[in-house]
Amino acid sequence: MYPTQKKCLTFQELFLSLHQFWANQGCIIHQSYDNEVGAGTFHPATFLRALGPEPWKAAYVQASRRPTDGRYGENPNRLQHYYQYQVLLKPAPDNIQDLYLQSLSSFGLSLTDHDIRFVQDDWESPTLGAWGLGWEVRLDGMEVTQFTYFQEIGGIALDPTSVEITYGLERVAMYLQEVDNVYDLAWTDDVTYRDVHHEGEVQFSDHNFNAANVDALKEAFNRSEEEGRALISKNLPLPAYDHCIKSSHFFNLLDARGAISVTERTGYIARVRGLARACAAGYVKKREEAGFPLLKK
């Protein structure tokens, strides 16, 4: 099928190829953040590091959670827990589009055999007070990557501008392995995605939609917000940001439980955003006090 590939790439070979490729471009290979996040953008290695004048290059796999996307392991395309491969480059290199295309070649995709398209996508995260312009990249019609030039994060305009590249790992792998069901993905030659994650999808779907305790979640949301605010006032933006991430996750769970009305939604989102802004401002201040150490490297 693919003349340039000897055999199908396993799921782990896919992100190992990407690690190698972006390491070669000078990225530090970071690790998944140890808090529940909705996307790789929430990782401090993106959200915070994109702020301020210091250069930064990082790549990592981020396990991401979208509680409302749970389908009890029955839908071939939707997961409440999935993986993003996240790259953040600051400043954005002039040849970044070419680098991205090369990264596709790195796992054996022959560019001239496919229809690769950059389709307009104005990215916005009301929760993070962030926006950027760019594209979703489609491979033969399938969206495989979000490609965004960040313009603002936590309400702060970015200078220099960062570029964020987010690969949907399962999508890419499904394409490469020609499978129509995510659970059929070969993680290795012997172990499938089903073996690793199916039971989790079943249990967490039940948790997200039925079992999670709404009152406890509401309380947890309030406490996280409170704690985050308190830590900001103690000039501890990094731990404060952890609470911002937590509050966002509690909100997502409440949303999945159907415990938030349309009008309440806006209020919740505004509260997370308020905290995110405070963390962003606190982080930049700290870095400035430290003399922006990475500028000297």
Binding site: T112, D113, H114, D115, L139, D140
Partner: peptide, 13 residues
């Protein structure tokens, strides 16, 4: 946006 040699790959995608 491409006239590839083997269009069937793209079609299948």
């Amino acid at each position: 946006n491409i006239d590839a040699k083997n269009l069937s790959i793209i079609q299948k995608g």
